[in-house]
Simulated scan of single mutants.
Amino acid sequence: MILFPNAKINIGLNVTERRADGFHNLESVFYPVNWCDALEILPSEETEFTSSGIEIPGNPESNLCLKAYELLKIDFEIPPVKMHLHKNIPIGAGLGGGSADAAFALKGLNELFELNLTSEQLENYARKLGADCAFFIQNKPVYAFNKGDEFEAVKLHLSGFQIIIVYPEIHITTAEAYGKIKPKPAEIPVKKAVQNAMENWQKTVFNDFETALFPTYPILPELKKQLYNAGAVYASMTGSGSAVFGIFKKEIPASLNFPDSFRSWQGSL
């Protein structure tokens, strides 16, 4: 079985308060995009995880795909598996790639071994692996709140728009990003702001991490400005950074280019 875990972008991200448990409450709109990894899962004589593509830091035994398998194994008698992940979505970019890998591992194991878990049950498992993992179970636009693991449907249809995502090879850890943030209630809730015409988003839809991180990483506001100068209707950093995206009504200009060391992806929403 081969699966293609996809990334997501945050359209607006307001960090509203610090929780008593040390996490933060936030609100954002999560929107799936087709920048994908590739995950193969096969029954095997012993459980094994390998990877290729972008180097994944840390011990392979702590990878979220393997943790997803171990989480299901607590409740189900599932045989050993061999998992291979080809990593293509940048790490530390705010695109949710690791969370997507974990969620797709859950979905793949559910299908492969006919566990008959519902989407709601899979989401509950996913929440144990990471705050935004549950989003990738149903993988459709949502308004996310609390820790980013509770969802409401949102009417947001961006089909026909084009997007480019640029990752400037800056790995921003979650700890660094949240360490610089000052939580505060949003003046205009994201759920309300995104219902306005996209032309108005520049003045109403904000990512709080931009204020926190742009002074430290000046290339990020430069990228955002470059996207607007190229004709983007809306541009923003996604998640806690460092990827920056631009949404265009028409084809993305061929003249728009970035240093060879940067990773980028473009496609339709």
Rank of each mutant, 00 (worst) to 15 (best):
A186L: 05
A193C: 11
K192A: 08
I188L: 15
K182C: 04
K184I: 00
N207V: 02
T174L: 04
V194W: 05
E199K: 13
E187T: 14
A197P: 08
N207I: 05
D208M: 00
Q202P: 07
N200C: 06
G179C: 14
E176H: 11
N196V: 02
K182V: 03
N196D: 11
T173W: 03
A212C: 05
V205S: 06
P183T: 02
K184F: 00
I188Q: 13
E169A: 15
F214V: 02
T173E: 10
P185C: 07
Q202F: 10
K191R: 08
K192T: 13
K182N: 05
E176W: 04
A175I: 12
E210H: 04
K203R: 09
T211L: 02
A175W: 06
F214N: 11
F206V: 04
V205A: 03
K203S: 15
K182W: 00
P185I: 07
I188S: 13
T204Y: 05
T211W: 01
I170F: 09
D208K: 01
H171R: 14
Q202R: 14
T173R: 09
Q202Y: 07
Q195I: 02
M198H: 11
T204I: 14
K180Y: 01
Y178S: 04
K184E: 03
N207T: 05
V194G: 11
K180D: 06
G179P: 14
E187W: 07
A175H: 14
K191V: 02
T173M: 06
A197L: 06
I188R: 14
I172G: 13
E199C: 07
M198G: 11
K184Y: 02
P183L: 00
I172L: 11
F214A: 00
Q202N: 15
D208N: 06
G179L: 04
T211F: 00
F206H: 04
K192M: 10
P189Q: 13
K184W: 00
I170S: 10
K191W: 07
E187K: 15
E210P: 05
K192V: 12
Q195Y: 05
V194P: 12
T204W: 05
V194A: 11
T211K: 08
F209N: 09
Y178F: 14
T174H: 06
L213P: 02
N207D: 04
F214T: 09
K180W: 00
K203I: 01
M198R: 07
L213N: 15
E210N: 06
I172M: 13
K203Q: 15
P183K: 04
A175V: 11
K191A: 10
L213I: 01
A193K: 10
H171I: 08
W201F: 07
T211V: 03
A175Q: 15
P185H: 09
G179F: 00
T204E: 07
